[in-house]
Every structure is written in C-alpha cells, then in structure tokens.
C-alpha cells in the first residue's frame, strides 16, 4: 500500500493507506485520534471538520493520500501546551455550547477557522459560517454565544 506522510498537531506522522482511505479514517484508525467524529459520513453534518493547511475541511470527504505533506490540525491540537482548554474550547464549556458533545469537535474546528479569518464576527456571520455544522441538542444559540465569547476573549 502507498505511504502517506503529514504533520498532525505539530507531529510528523506517516502510515500506509489505500487510495480510498479517508482522512478521518487515517486520523481515527491509524493514529487513534478519535476526537474527530464521523456523524453523517455524507459531508453534511461537520462533526469531522479538521484543518488542512490552516483551512477547515470535512475529513470524511477528503482522501488521506490527498493530504501528503500537509499540516493537519484536529481537536486534539486545540488544547494549550499545558493541557488546559484552548480559548474556544473554554468558551464552549463556559457558555454551555455543548450538550451531548458529538458535534463539538467539528464546531470548535469550524469556529477556529472563522475566527482566524474574521476575529470579531457578528451573530449573523457566525450562523452563516456554521451552515456546514449540525447540532441536534443545543439549538445553536449557546454555540453562537460560545463563539462570540471566544472572539471577545481573543480581543
């Protein structure tokens, strides 16, 4: 099988993959980074969102082999160096931005991409950005509040 090499959360990793191996499969099954979730597996729900070269993508709809040489960041890479929660993660906890938590890794990764491009988004901009992330518990209100709070904490 062909080999793929990439940097995941700052660490160089490599492994054997098939052409059809999805990035999320490589992350979860080869690297055992199970924070990234598979919800719908049809690129609708966004539970699988990770960053590839700094941009959010759906790892269930990206081939692992396509990420040869890429810098990948997953939810496991969002904590601070001392293991404490990163700003966005902390804001989700403080604002009850999660209930069951299944969608949360994707929500945090999407939010991180948004805040990088737009450090002070309006509520409407946050809601529009989250089109590709589905949550069945919170009704989104607390997620939007969490992202607003993270933006304020970064300011």
């Amino acid at each position: 099988m062909p080999k793929v090499s990439m940097t995941v959360n700052g660490k160089a990793v490599s492994g054997e993959v098939e052409g059809r191996t999805l990035l999320v499969e490589f992350l979860r099954e080869s690297l055992r980074l199970t924070g990234t979730h598979v919800g719908c597996d049809t690129s609708q729900c966004g539970a699988c969102v990770v960053h590839v070269n700094g941009e959010s993508v759906k790892s269930c709809t990206t081939f692992a082999a396509a990420c040869e040489g890429a810098e990948v960041t997953t939810i496991e890479g969002m904590a601070n160096a001392d293991g404490s929660l990163g700003t966005i993660q902390q804001a989700f906890q403080d604002n009850h931005g999660l209930q069951c938590g299944f969608c949360t890794p994707g929500m945090v990764m999407s939010a991180a991409d948004l805040l990088k491009q737009n450090p002070d988004p309006s509520e409407a901009e946050i809601r529009e950005w989250l089109e590709g992330n589905l949550c069945r518990c919170t009704g989104y209100h607390n997620i939007v509040r969490s992202i607003k709070a993270a933006a304020a904490a970064n300011a």
Binding site: V57, S110, L114, W129
Partner: peptide, 9 residues
C-alpha cells in the same frame, strides 16, 4: 455554494 468546508475543497 454548500458550506465553508465544501468551498475549501
């Protein structure tokens, strides 16, 4: 088109 993640691919 789609959502931000789809537009990134």
């Amino acid at each position: 088109i789609g959502d931000p993640q789809v537009r990134n691919r």
